[in-house]
Design a protein around this nucleic acid. Sequence first.
DNA 1: CGAATAGTGTCTCTCAGACAATATTGC
DNA 2: GCAATATTGTCTGAGAGACACTATTCG
Lengths: 244, 244
Amino acid sequence: MPQGESEREFLKGYDPRAFPPFAVTVDMVVLTVREGVLSVLLVERETHPFRGRLALPGGFVQKDEDLEAAAVRRLEQETGVRRDVAHVEQLGAFGDPRRDPRMRVVSVPYLVFAPDLPAPTPGTGASWVAWVPVRAVESDRLAFDHAAVLAAGVERARAKLEYSPLATAFCDEELTVADLRRVYEAVWGVPLDPRNFHRKTTGTPGFLVPVGRDSQPGPGGGRPAALYRRGDAQQLHPAMLRPH
Amino acid sequence: MPQGESEREFLKGYDPRAFPPFAVTVDMVVLTVREGVLSVLLVERETHPFRGRLALPGGFVQKDEDLEAAAVRRLEQETGVRRDVAHVEQLGAFGDPRRDPRMRVVSVPYLVFAPDLPAPTPGTGASWVAWVPVRAVESDRLAFDHAAVLAAGVERARAKLEYSPLATAFCDEELTVADLRRVYEAVWGVPLDPRNFHRKTTGTPGFLVPVGRDSQPGPGGGRPAALYRRGDAQQLHPAMLRPH
DNA sequence: CGAATAGTGTCTCTCAGACAATATTGC
DNA sequence: GCAATATTGTCTGAGAGACACTATTCG
């Protein structure tokens, strides 16, 4: 190929009209189950735009930073949730031209399943951070398009619990069948039969591995429950289907 | 709030270090089933980078253009596939810092299910466009990270066919049960029992609606098949599960 | 002992997979 | 008739939901 043509073609790639400038942010939908209630981590914005409004934690992706690395960095910095105790997956891309009043921004939200952790401490860019029950979130008051992002995250979480063993990501390393059942009940918002749930979860290969010890009974008594760890299955066969 | 503080906070939002410049592209994983083979639409790039290499069709998102609108525009311009005959859904975001040698680019790929259409005509930015059987794609030779994007699209398609009625998006408006079965067989890559398949698809509410007419038998004879249209179900109950 | 929670067993119904049998076409 | 395709029916086994019953703790 002649050098001139190659160079011309290459420069053609740099036509500034072809590369409208965008900013890229990551936002996190961090979900947990606290006291039987599905909750999401929200921050209060301390800068414009939407100063003082509740929002999902997040921020701008840096020049040479991988998207997921940016999400994990923000997660640890801004909320104190450590990556190794949580499940992190990409939720998609939100890029409506008017979603940020400053400029054109595409947000790549990440969905995080975290065990019940101590209240996080506010970090950079947020003056306040807390777990808020998902059902108590006032969607109209969230910054940007975060109501839609949150809704997508919750729906993804509900679907994921059917076909993947990720419900265990909401629990501590050692868990009981009842712990797991409370996760399903909180995320799906429906009561489940403890007996059928026990049979299904312990009967699905690779879901739960018995530790060989029992948990301490709660106050008021009750038989101690066997402790389990996560198995190595990536998919559940058979699946845990939502009642329809 | 005092004007000065508000303005300072607002300007703070414009700190150039906080907004590293990105370009955003959309790429399309356009799938169809031709002669019983799952195929993807590929173009030959006529500009740098990766000039002469095969790639997914796509391009830069314009300043005030919605992501999905950009994808649909490119789809129609570059490949001749019309939006109203296809299913379009977002596939995620790919943003590795080194995925484009020119600059930092985040790509938002869209997955498209199209019926078997006449060979498309090359459009802007491509000197060649064709349907390529997915199994014949040489992954190493695709531009950018399009091998990973294609793999994600194919896997998403396989999963979608289980729980959604979208297999019909690969067929014409009027279809037979055998048409639909050939879609499942091509996408999943496994043969299915025609008798059980017939019972399941016609028995799942909202999947197929009988038209009341029969199709013409193919060459070599055979009983004419009843014609159906898509039903209005959004999810399949019960699902069409892949053999495992 | 009674209340509470954990775990097992049993029954019924749906559905998936295997495959026999029948129906309707072209040749 | 014969090959090819469509459609219905029948059987078996897995699994889901309902729920009786047993097991083990606290008070």
